[in-house]
Amino acid sequence: TFYNFIMGFQNDNTPFGILAEHVSEDKAFPRLEERHQVIRAYVMSNYTDHQLIETTNRAISLYMANL
């Protein structure tokens, strides 16, 4: 899942690491979701930090390219 992918960046001092920290603390994050459209919609609806949203979009693109 995307959640498992992004958790691989925990403790990294990178934008993906920052995203992983936010996702791990977000109890409502769709952890079992595999459809990138649902993940993107969730982030757009629940996150207000523009940098975090952009990082999510980049992470989703990388995740999709590696499926």
Rank of each mutant, 00 (worst) to 15 (best):
E34G: 14
M64H: 10
I53V: 09
Y63S: 02
H22A: 11
T56H: 04
L67R: 06
S24G: 10
D12K: 13
P15C: 10
S61V: 13
Y47P: 01
P15K: 06
N57C: 09
E34D: 13
M64S: 07
R31A: 06
N46A: 09
N46R: 07
H36R: 04
K27C: 08
S45H: 11
F2M: 02
I60E: 00
M44D: 07
F2Q: 00
S61F: 11
Y42F: 04
R31D: 03
L19G: 03
Y3Q: 00
P15M: 09
H22P: 00
S24R: 14
D12A: 11
A59N: 04
E21M: 15
G17D: 03
Y42M: 02
L52V: 05
D12C: 12
N13F: 07
R35L: 05
F2D: 01
E33L: 03
F9R: 01
V23Q: 03
N57W: 10
G17A: 11
F16L: 11
H50R: 12
L67K: 10
N66E: 13
A59V: 07
S45M: 14
Q51T: 12
V23D: 03
Y3M: 02
L62F: 07
Q37E: 15
I6D: 00
H22Y: 14
V43N: 00
I60G: 00
L19Q: 02
L52Y: 05
F29P: 01
E25G: 13
E21H: 15
D12W: 07
N11C: 09
L19V: 05
A65F: 10
H22N: 05
K27A: 12
F2V: 03
Y3L: 03
R40G: 05
A28R: 10
L19D: 02
I53Q: 08
D26Q: 05
I6Y: 05
T14M: 03
D12P: 07
F29V: 01
T1N: 09
Y47A: 02
R35M: 07
R31V: 08
A28Q: 13
T55P: 01
T56I: 14
S45E: 14
V38C: 11
F5Q: 00
A20P: 01
L67E: 09
F9D: 00
A20Y: 05
I60A: 04
Q51A: 13
M44N: 10
E33G: 02
Y63R: 02
